[in-house]
Write a protein that binds this DNA or RNA. Structure first.
Lengths: 343, 343
DNA sequence: CTGTTAGCGCGTTCAC
DNA sequence: GTGAACGCGCTAACAG
């Protein structure tokens, strides 16, 4: 049985209050008694019980992060950003992974209780109105990252613009047969719909350039490289295949590259490939992509959250949106289309 | 202010004891009163306070995971394995990231207190004897994953064997000029020394084949692709460069590949490259590597931990080692050496 | 400056 | 079957 604050008090010949004071280094403790207490602490190898401390003080020194598929490179990178600000502040991280709709709903239901953490970060999952309402009146501040609700503070990017930038890049290179593949837009998961917004940007770019949208150039399936690979095969089997494919994420772009390789379609000579996110592998694969500040999103989200934790009333008076910039990273998977339109 | 158990009791016209009973569905509660209580709970939208419950019951329904550089693909993959067993059991995950020696020591000091979780998983960090002693008598069970101490239960692989397998593969292909690059073996971090053990396997394989070890073929630096890239350039600048490079991890192998590309050295025709781990990108890059069951290590570690949580005395009577199998995954970065020894 | 005491919210005896 | 009281370990407010 570990020693308690009482054991320490007894051994040091003082009251528990005094021990508590030295623990939280209160100024008003005589130097000599402080030393006595510290000796007792050392002798008993005493550490205050975190749970008891939390219950009594109301503070937990934890922050909660809800992350769907936290193993995805993008989530991991965001988490890493969060982590860097947590260490500074001596906070720990409680991770709530979400892989099913059920789990998602459950968390949105119970988390606002917020008794395990002093603040909550929600990645990529956009709450509906009811949920947002709960979150808004949660016991602790909440910040959305890569997710959206008008009533909640958030750190986001402009996905429409991103989709537009990607498509525009391909158009500028001379492409007109441009496909878009993505995960399922109408996800039962109620994601922020990043893919859906990128799709809008794609459509807008085509429209502005006077390129007609072709339904057969627009495919969706579960997120993942293998699925993207399959979709690419379908695209390249078309009577008139696209000369460029814009994938809604780098992970999916990887699938595209693999399919191209399997068919001996040269990238970028015969096929241009664009990704989105700029995860680490994108660089290894020389993938042209839209860079979004993943790491930074974690940092900014966490910092905003701490601002609210330290200043709870700000939360009631503002809904802040931090918009992170996007950047086209041109590497070696995009080029002008083959001069002679093949077939 | 959220409702407490007392509010519920009052509203239902019962004592707090009864409310507690229905919460933990104790059998001895009359059906009619149970219903009354449940109504009150619903009406007040009551959720028991997790912290209070933890303090009073001594159970937390959390498990702690210490992971150095949890952003590394290998840690992430292990975490994913852990996660799958946690969801089944309704446990949450508290993540302790470690990026510095200081943080490492601090955690080994305070974590054995174990008041925030019911069990602790330690990834990749091997405790010294003192720390192991603390861990062994911690308030909660501890299991090591990819780390070693004779007094602690663990899930591991045979890194020496792995290094041997990798090197042997290259030798069997006909290579004799085989380099080994790794992160720093004498890490102040006190890692398990996986790289050091793989190095031993490398030496053994060379020795058995009667190939003399060349110090200039053995380089080390901080972990990371860029560092590996630089080391590769040094190797390839040697008067007699190696025909094969075995990198201690896939991440480092990626650096090797990039350097080769930069120098227009064809892989595998002019240079064979072996990795270790078989992380996801290895497949994308067609990297020949040693597969270690990362995901499985998380699953097994978590399951072993739960066995101890449910059966605490087992822990005192056994030190269990789960040894996970290794597998050579031959892809396309290894081949026989160029027939004419260049230069 | 410091000891004492009242909670924090809930689980758990123990009598009724 | 159920209510009341105590305790988990600590912080904070209040005397002294």
């Amino acid at each position: 049985m570990p020693a308690t604050i009482r054991d320490v008090a007894k051994r040091a010949g003082v009251g528990v209050g005094t021990v508590s004071r030295v623990l939280n280094n209160h100024p008003s403790v005589r130097e000599s008694t402080r030393r006595r207490v510290e000796e007792a602490i050392a002798a008993l190898n005493y550490r205050p019980n975190t749970i008891a401390r939390q219950l009594s003080s109301g503070k937990t020194a934890n922050i909660g992060v809800v992350a769907p598929f936290f193993i995805r490179p993008s989530s991991v990178e965001r988490l890493r950003g969060v982590e860097t600000v947590l260490v500074e502040r001596q906070y720990d991280l409680i991770l709530y992974n979400v892989e099913t709709k059920k789990k998602r709903d459950e968390l949105f239901q119970t988390l606002p209780r917020g008794d395990m953490f002093d603040g909550l970060l929600v990645f990529t999952l956009s709450p509906n109105d009811d949920e947002a309402e709960r979150l808004r009146h949660a016991a602790v501040p909440v910040v959305l990252v890569d997710a959206f609700h008008p009533a909640l503070s958030r750190v986001v990017i402009d996905d429409i613009e991103g989709g537009y930038m990607a498509t525009k890049h391909l158009i500028d290179l001379g492409h007109t047969r441009i496909a878009y593949i993505s995960d399922i837009l109408e996800s039962p998961f109620e994601f922020v719909g990043a893919s859906a917004q990128r799709y809008q940007g794609y459509r807008r770019a085509l429209h502005e350039a006077g390129i007609e949208f072709r339904p057969e150039y627009y495919l969706q399936d579960q997120h993942g490289a293998p699925q993207a690979q399959a979709m690419t095969h379908r695209l390249l089997s078309l009577a008139e295949p696209p000369t460029a494919i814009f994938a809604a994420s780098d992970t999916q772009a990887i699938g595209v590259l693999r399919a191209a390789k399997e068919r001996n379609v040269a990238v970028p000579e015969q096929l241009s490939v664009m990704g989105f996110d700029d995860i680490e592998v994108a660089e290894y694969l020389n993938l042209t992509t839209i860079h979004q500040p993943l790491f930074t999103s974690g940092v900014e989200g966490a910092e905003l959250l701490f601002r609210y934790i330290e200043n709870p009333d700000e939360l009631r008076h503002e809904v802040k949106e931090v918009l992170l910039p996007l950047r086209l990273i041109q590497r070696q998977t995009t080029a002008p289309p083959p001069s002679h339109t093949t077939r």
